[in-house]
């Protein structure tokens, strides 16, 4: 079974009288170790899809299995546990806590996991070293550059050893060279076997990931694996070109 499996997932929002289908019958599966980009124009449903995949929300209908657990029917506390144990998030705007230093920010997920102080510290230091910021442990986010902040965020996403990392426009607030280095870091992590899903509107970035999932109007309109990636993967590629 795949790490993530969506079957006929829809997400509808009511705005006054109108009902908007942010996701409309999405089928998708992501295997462990994949590195995929979700791409599409603004309003196509990328963020909504990522929120569902990241267990921040539940679908209106359909089924969502994550690591063998049915997240579409889980309650709020269960979703929190899933996020804490199996998922790491990296955001466009870093979302570090400004009053905490680098170490404390990276320790935060382990506090909610209930780890002891000594374990928290050693694991946080290891994660910080992994992203190359060992010399900035005591700095607060405001004393760091954008690229460094995003590295801290990645360390925080890694620290609980999640099954999958979601990144929503992780380079959106960075200049191109810094963005490059962050992408390189993702590349490395992927090479070490991490499952990573990025959301981007940048075709160039999407072109570099082994898998490209393209969305429009709440539907997946293309799901392409590059030759290099495809051979070891499930060839069940869905291509739906629907024009209404």
């Amino acid at each position: 079974m795949a790490l993530i499996e969506l079957t006929e997932v829809t997400k509808r929002y009511r705005v006054g009288e109108q009902e908007i289908a942010a996701l409309d019958g999405v089928n998708l599966s992501i295997e462990a170790g994949e590195y995929a980009a979700i791409i599409g124009p603004s309003g196509s449903g990328k963020s909504t899809l990522m929120h569902l995949l990241g267990c921040l929300d539940t679908p209106t209908s359909g089924r969502l299995m994550i690591d063998g657990i049915d997240a579409s029917r889980a309650g709020g506390d269960r979703l929190s546990e899933l996020r804490n144990a199996k998922i790491g998030f990296v955001f466009q705007s870093f979302n570090l806590l400004p009053k905490f230093n680098v170490l404390q920010n990276v320790e935060l997920p382990m506090i909610y996991a209930g780890l002891r102080a000594a374990d928290r510290k050693s694991r946080a230091l290891a994660a910080i070293e992994r992203v190359g910021l060992s010399n900035r442990v005591k700095n607060t986010p405001l004393q760091l550059s954008g690229g460094q902040m995003q590295r801290v965020a990645i360390a925080r996403a890694l620290v609980n050893d999640p099954r999958i990392i979601f990144a929503d426009e992780p380079t959106g607030n960075l200049d191109s060279t810094t963005g490059e280095s962050i992408l390189a870091l993702f590349q490395e992590l992927s090479a070490q076997g991490r499952t990573i899903v990025l959301v981007t509107h940048d075709q160039e970035i999407a072109a570099r990931t082994p898998r490209r999932i393209e969305m429009r109007d709440g539907k997946i309109v293309a799901d392409v694996r590059t030759a290099a990636a495809a051979e070891s993967r499930n060839p069940n590629i869905e291509i739906r070109n629907e024009s209404e």
Partner: peptide, 15 residues
């Protein structure tokens, strides 16, 4: 925003 971040990384409502 901070509360959103905490929730995203695994804080429960009661935390």
């Amino acid at each position: 925003r901070e509360i959103g971040v905490r929730r995203a990384i695994g804080a429960k409502g009661r935390d």
